[in-house]
Design a protein around this nucleic acid. Structure first.
Length: 352
DNA sequence: AATCCTATCAACCGCTTCACA
DNA sequence: GTGTGAAGCGGTTGATAGGAT
């Protein structure tokens, strides 16, 4: 007999969240922080389990979420990180400010996987499918299934257009940490500065076929230790406050104003700016260094100003991408914005 | 206009990890 | 060292929207 789900004791609501429930949760966490998730529903007046509340907050209500489509740079980054980390979505999400593991997982499963297969790359190994076919011949059924999928996707793709991807240069090896750990190179740091790796790896090729570009840099030299180091050092760790059990998920006025002045602004639902305007950081349970960093890292860094160093006019492209992102309206949020409680929040914002 | 198909996304489920008594 | 509850994670499912037929 399997384990009971979290709402087995009482009759708890399931399924999609209503605006009313969102309001309750948002109000509660805004005022009190989440604290112990299992007590949140009771205290917030919700007939949900704590797990559900946590998920709703993390994946939807959090004020620092981007609500825009993934940019091609973000997709590239997901591909790169997945090649190194595998399906560790939360780890990957930690490197993408404003993105959730769920979102990235969905992107991977619904979009990136297919795009890679269309380009003849096995999404599991990041190797050319022909290689994968050979190496998986020990398990013919599975290999055949995967290959069939890949082939059908490949056929759907426009074969008349040449792919610019040089798969042979993408020597991605997973799971050989010892080997990786021993290697040093100019590329050893993963993203050593606040920008994304594209500046550092100039031989990126962009396919005109779609927005996916496949990087040509020595991915095999990235390793888990380095990524863990990145996380510990929080070079551009965006969600540290959310990973912490002790920190109240709040946002400072200074951050908020910076946020409102910067590009991230465009992706945020209007109401969140006002809603969180009067909240302060509760850093009582973390070191001053880390909290200071948290304040700085998210918005003071240039993580949203990704540049592509490879091409002429890249900055123009980047700008275009950003503005395209900025113009992406999230229908759900705009609908949401019109609900009563959000309208109320917005009014308050306007009056303050 | 109706139906089918596909893509996307939100949410759930069950397992693992962590923290604490 | 062990038990327990909470949190976190990744796989999976179900609902829905939009496009194709």
């Amino acid at each position: 007999m399997g384990r009971q789900s979290c709402g087995y004791k009482q009759k708890l609501r399931k399924g999609l969240w209503s605006p009313d429930e969102d309001e309750k949760l948002l109000r509660y966490i805004t005022e009190h922080g989440h604290g112990c998730w299992s007590s949140v529903p009771k205290l917030a007046g919700l007939e949900r389990c704590g797990k559900s509340c946590r998920l709703r907050w993390i994946n939807y209500l959090r004020p620092d979420l981007k609500r825009t489509r993934f940019s091609s740079q973000e997709e590239n980054l997901v591909i790169q990180l997945q090649s190194v980390l595998g399906n560790r979505w939360s780890r990957i999400a930690a490197q993408l400010p404003g993105r959730t593991d769920n979102e990235i997982k969905n992107l991977w499963n619904s979009s990136i996987k297919k795009k890679l297969m269309q380009k003849g790359i096995d999404p599991n190994t990041h190797k050319p499918l022909s290689e994968v076919k050979l190496s998986t011949s020990k398990c013919p059924e599975k290999a055949s299934r995967e290959l069939d999928t890949a082939i059908s996707l490949n056929l759907k793709a426009d074969s008349s257009k040449p792919s610019l991807i040089d798969v042979s240069s993408c020597k991605i090896e997973k799971g050989d940490d010892n080997l990786n750990a021993s290697k040093t190179s100019a590329h050893q740091e993963f993203f050593p500065d606040k920008s994304l790796p594209f500046n550092r790896y100039p031989n990126i090729q962009h396919s005109p076929l779609d927005s996916i570009a496949y990087l040509q840099f020595p991915v095999q030299q990235l390793n888990h230790e380095q990524l863990e180091l990145d996380q510990k050092c929080s070079l551009f760790e965006p969600n540290q406050e959310l990973n912490s059990r002790t920190l109240v998920p709040t946002i400072s006025r200074s951050i908020l104003s910076a946020q409102m002045d910067n590009k991230i602004h465009a992706g945020l639902p209007f109401h969140s700016m006002g809603t969180f305007n009067n909240i302060h950081w509760d850093s009582s349970n973390c070191s001053s260094e880390s909290s200071e960093f948290q304040k700085k890292s998210l918005f003071d860094s240039n993580v949203f100003s990704w540049g592509l160093a490879d091409d002429g006019g890249s900055s123009d492209k980047t700008l275009q991408l950003h503005s395209a992102d900025a113009e992406t309206t999230d229908i759900k949020w705009s609908e949401y914005h019109n609900t009563s409680f959000l309208a109320e929040h917005n009014q308050q914002t306007l009056h303050s």
